[in-house]
């Protein structure tokens, strides 16, 4: 089932010289986990902002084409309407705290209150996502007193509580330490368990290989590659495109290890299996 359809999307920020996105068309199936990669200025964040309707409703600029989320055109729906369908989490965890609530528990209610949910429904959802994100211990703390990883988990939980079908995460771990990154990726894996459609922008290719079933590689506002994760990371022109691959794929490439589909392994377990199959259990 199609979840997201993007047709000929182009966008230029006001005052910018070049288009941030140039004629992008793609489809995302329900339940897909798309890893978005690409260098600076590739249009990754612009794509995220477009999916939640911030472009063109919040950022004014030249917008062409259309984005359909379940046949709902982002151009004709308000950000508030879209917020119930598409959730956005971005880089800086600090700036995603509303600043209007004095406890983690109340912070989770912020979006629910805005959307006019009943009290009992709110409590049910808050309890659920506090547990799911392991935030129960800090539920009475001031949100600003949390660690970066916890804050980002709170941001994810606050968006999850709105029960969107599509979850967009724009480099949610880029400002976090390794421990915080680990916590957030664990949280992201829960999104997959909830069968949400996830769009995750990240430079952590090893992690993307673990979670994403497809990779979208953007370069200078255009789609450079969009395919199954293993297929993208197995391409021979990655280096020319200015993109790396997960460390396990790089090792396999060096060793010339390909599977029956003529693709390189992308995960540790796959590489290990292939190494064992080729060299026996006692290698090294």
């Amino acid at each position: 089932m199609k979840k997201i359809t993007i047709n000929n999307l182009s966008y230029k920020y006001s005052l910018a010289e070049n288009k941030a996105l140039n004629n992008i068309s793609l489809e995302v199936e329900k339940g897909d986990f798309i890893g978005v990669v690409g260098p600076n200025k590739a249009g990754k964040s612009t794509l995220c902002k477009s999916l939640v309707g911030l472009i063109p409703h919040f950022y004014k600029g030249e917008f062409e084409g259309e984005i359909l989320i379940d046949n709902l055109n982002t151009l004709n729906s308000s950000i508030a309407e879209l917020s119930l369908k598409v959730g956005l989490v971005f880089q800086n965890p600090f700036n995603q705290i509303s600043g209007a609530k004095l406890s983690v528990y109340d912070e989770l209610a912020f979006g629910l209150e805005n959307n006019g949910l009943g009290r009992e429904e709110m409590i049910t959802r808050i309890d659920k996502y506090l547990n799911l994100m392991d935030l129960n211990e800090v539920k009475d703390n001031n949100p600003f007193e949390l660690s970066g990883g916890q804050m980002q988990k709170l941001a994810i939980a606050s968006i999850m509580a709105l029960k969107p079908d599509v979850f967009v995460l724009d480099e949610p771990t880029s400002q976090l330490d390794p421990q915080g990154t680990e916590e957030v990726f664990k949280a992201v894996s829960r999104l997959r368990e909830e069968n949400l459609t996830v769009i995750l922008v990240s430079q952590k290719l090893n992690k993307l290989a673990d979670y994403a079933n497809k990779i979208l590689f953007l370069n200078q506002g255009e789609i450079a590659a969009y395919d199954n994760t293993a297929a993208v990371f197995s391409r021979n022109d990655l280096e020319q495109m200015g993109m790396g691959a997960p460390i396990y794929t790089e090792i396999a490439r060096e060793l010339g290890l390909k599977n029956e589909k003529n693709q390189y392994p992308i995960r540790k377990s796959e590489l290990k299996e292939m190494l064992v199959a080729k060299y026996g259990k006692n290698i090294g």
């Binding site: 308000s78 508030a80 956005l88 971005f90 800086n92 912020f110 805005n114 006019g116 009290r119």
Partner: peptide, 26 residues
């Protein structure tokens, strides 16, 4: 910059929703 980012965060949590606001606490 922070204010700008925070206003995005508020928007995506329905801050400008036209629906009647409700309250967690009675």
């Amino acid at each position: 910059v922070n204010t700008h980012e925070r206003s995005i965060a508020l928007e995506v949590r329905g801050f400008s929703a036209a629906t009647q606001k409700t309250f967690l606490h009675q």
